[in-house]
Amino acid sequence: MPRRPVGPWRSGWRRLRRDRGSLTSLLAVSVIVLVALFGGATATRVFGHNGDTPFLYAANTDQKAVGPWSHVPTPKSPLFDAYGQLQTPPKGTKTTLFVLGSDGPLGRDELIRLLDGLRTSLEVGVGAMLVSLLIALPLGSLAGYFGGAIDAVVSQLTETIMAFPLLLFLLFANRYLISDFRSVGWSWVVPDGAPAEALLIGVFTAFYPTRLIRAELFSLRHAEFVEAAHMVGASNWRILRRHLLPHLAPTLLVWGAIAVGTNILAEVGLSFLGVGVQASVPTLGSLLSTVWGTIFNPQTYNSQVYTPWQTVFPMVAIVVTVVSLNRFSEALRRAMEPRETR
């Protein structure tokens, strides 16, 4: 009795398991996702305050934020002297720990904001990836499988859109076309504006997977197994669904991991343009743009208030997340498409 051959998923997993670098990237991405999903809520529990509560004592009298690992006094009522100046609280006042310092004159916890921001950014990244997949699958399949006039139209469209800088479209659409949708959200789990941003980024980056799917199907549509399926009378729909789409899964998986990363960067860009989610909602981009300001409203450097960690921590978070996603996508490609070397 011959043994059943190993399927592509299982053999891919075996290849991934064998490579130390690939395993590391898988671990890194898993940790980032877990931290993003549960980090904010856990930290809120542990430290007893959330990322939106301002603390008067988390910024000094010059409105300079306190640094990392500060114990911030939390008196029942803040103590002002006769001139309205904040007074040092008496000894023995209860304190709360700000692990990464506070986020600015408002005095909110940078660590919890960072964790919440990571979650929102990942939500936007994954959401945008799914939206563009939803658009690209039908468009790319039609163009790649049927060719001809549909293909000509879709190709000209993608080529034209890709010739133009994407963010200008994003800017335009965000300002004029979807302003009503921007307040859609679901409590703190999906903050207001995140779905709108995911939709925006997703729609305008859908052209990349469309091309990818089209190119893949173009090379597969005359393969022997497709002709065989035609021969036994399978419909176009069945061939696409049962015979061709499974072939796309590895490519789309590799693309998906990278796309989440680039979408996170796109979100950072939109925040700098001042058209991201509302500034009060923490995302990796808005954490940076509250310090640096936006393109239309740049913040001037003020040495009295300036604190490096407010820029360093979000930047590190962005780079680590996007690098991990990139490496993970690379690992997936090595595991799923071993013949292709680049």
């Binding site: 950072v268 860009g269 962005i318 490496r327």
Partner: peptide, 13 residues
């Protein structure tokens, strides 16, 4: 790879 995973605005600033 690290450089390409930054944002132009971040790198510029």
């Amino acid at each position: 790879l690290v450089l390409v995973c930054t944002h132009p605005m971040m790198l510029g600033l």
